[in-house]
Design a protein around this nucleic acid. Structure first.
Lengths: 273, 273
DNA sequence: CGATAGGTTGAATTTTTTCAATTCCAGTGG
DNA sequence: CCACTGGAATTGAAAAAATTCAACCTATCG
């Protein structure tokens, strides 16, 4: 792995390693060993930052799995994301100088610390660093937009299906199997993330299993028909499904029709600058 | 208004005006008249940018109302936000160099153009500009997080209530009345934004009207009981409501209980850097 | 080996959507 | 000026989706 070097008995990474981790194509021309970023380890269950805590550092996930949550007026958690390798944490703290969410390790984690002050100062010298920051923040914004679209428009089944697909994609990106993996989070956390109850999540997974889209065994998920999952809109009524063992190929899944013609992209109006 | 000066027959704003518009507390020490940003006007219905269009400029709303939308595989719109004075548009285009959403004017608008390249170059000279950028992007992220939390956790009624409250707050910020205002969007657009059908939105507004929380007349909304709206969780069953005219004060709205004790903020683990 | 958190499943209930029928209003053309 | 028209909004009733409540598994961890 591109983990980084030891120094003073700790792990450190240079800018290139950080950029690689973030998948930011940086033509990193820098005398790298100068600026190093320290790693920190967190154990399962530990909190990286809490809501309201003074903000001063961003984090990049080098390994491990986390969740970020909002806490409502009753103390209920609302899961916002499941950061993993290559994701950045803490960006929501920049604006108000306080973290707006809470981040918790779902497994043992190795995070890279990016002191924000130092980072912006460096950004003015090293252009790629600055671009990296803007790029990552924008990417995060796009991700959240997609999430809003999903919560606003999709059925429970479609949400769970897309959740599985996106997890599979992330695992593939990280070099793990996208066909067989372990969920690091509970049904409750998945439900919170997807705006559903844990029971609905559980039932939906069982239904997918029944029609052979996936296999489920507790937290172990096998993806059998990724294409069907990607385009799934809703499941046929359960009486049309047989109760026999899984393993057959998905027979009837109502998927997306070919994109409607819609009104064309219409004339673009672009003001000159 | 802090609209800006004429030059070459067009409106332009300086950095201080831009910062003020964004509510970024900038100790703007700059010889302001040097760097000016051009305005552009859009008429109701015009598109500011489309999905996939090459990104090169950000926009700040100086006046008017807009919506940003995602388009799904069927050509259906999913409303993401209703930008208005002081909001920034186009940030989602930075990452992939293409706008990820579409922005449409819901009224005649006046926008300030911020060519992104120019902006980042200036940011390296003028610190407050750079801070402004990070601050605005982070704020947008927080806003979207709140949206996800709302879509994930709240009932239809609570969503509509909070939508009205947040609109009222925005209007107040802009110096308009927060007690009586006009919706610039259709029920359909509100529904899309809140993850509801237009009928549910309409029914909910009617219900709020019936119990005296608001008055509704087409797009004209009067806020009668902002506090009840802010904390509303769900409405009592309709048979417990009388069908008589509005105007009475809200009698029974199930609101939030005092925050649960929850498990305390627990020991904070903070790594040194 | 029990305690316990996590997970599954069923049945009843509630919430929200869907479908359908009107109504309201702004704009248009006779 | 006024009747028409079409998009927007309201309202009702039926249907569907998701939640709630409850019971019951099943791993895991002291």
């Amino acid at each position: 792995m591109e983990a980084g070097r030891q120094r003073q008995g700790r792990l450190w990474s240079n800018l290139k390693e950080v950029c690689d981790l973030l998948h930011i194509p940086s033509a990193c021309t820098i005398q790298s060993e100068e600026l190093l970023f320290q790693h920190v380890q967190f154990k399962t269950g530990q909190r990286i930052h809490t809501i309201g805590q003074p903000f001063d550092t961003l984090y990049i996930v080098n390994s491990g799995f986390l969740k970020t949550v909002l806490i409502d007026e009753f103390g209920n958690e609302q899961v916002l994301s499941f950061p993993m390798k290559g994701d950045m944490l803490g960006v929501d703290g920049i604006h108000s100088r306080q973290y707006a969410s809470e981040a918790v390790a779902l497994s043992d984690c190795d995070l890279i610390l990016l002191p924000f002050k130092k980072l912006t100062a460096l950004g003015r010298v090293h252009l790629e660093l600055e671009n990296m920051m803007y790029g990552v923040m924008s990417r995060e914004l796009v991700r959240e937009q997609a999430m809003i679209g999903m919560l606003g428009a999709l059925s429970a089944e479609a949400r769970v299906a897309r959740f599985l697909v996106s997890l599979a994609d992330r695992f593939a990106q990280m070099g793990y199997s996208s066909k067989l993996f372990n969920l690091r989070m509970t049904r409750h956390e998945i439900g919170s993330y997807l705006g559903l109850t844990l029971e609905t999540v559980s039932r939906t997974l069982s239904a997918f299993n029944e029609i052979g889209l996936i296999t489920v065994d507790q937290r172990t998920i096998g993806i059998k028909d990724p294409d069907a999952l990607k385009t799934l809109r809703r499941l046929p009524p359960s009486r049309s499904r047989s109760k026999s063992g899984a393993g057959r190929k998905a027979a009837a899944v109502e998927a997306a029709e070919p994109a409607a013609p819609s009104t064309g992209p219409s004339v673009q109006l672009m003001a000159a600058v």
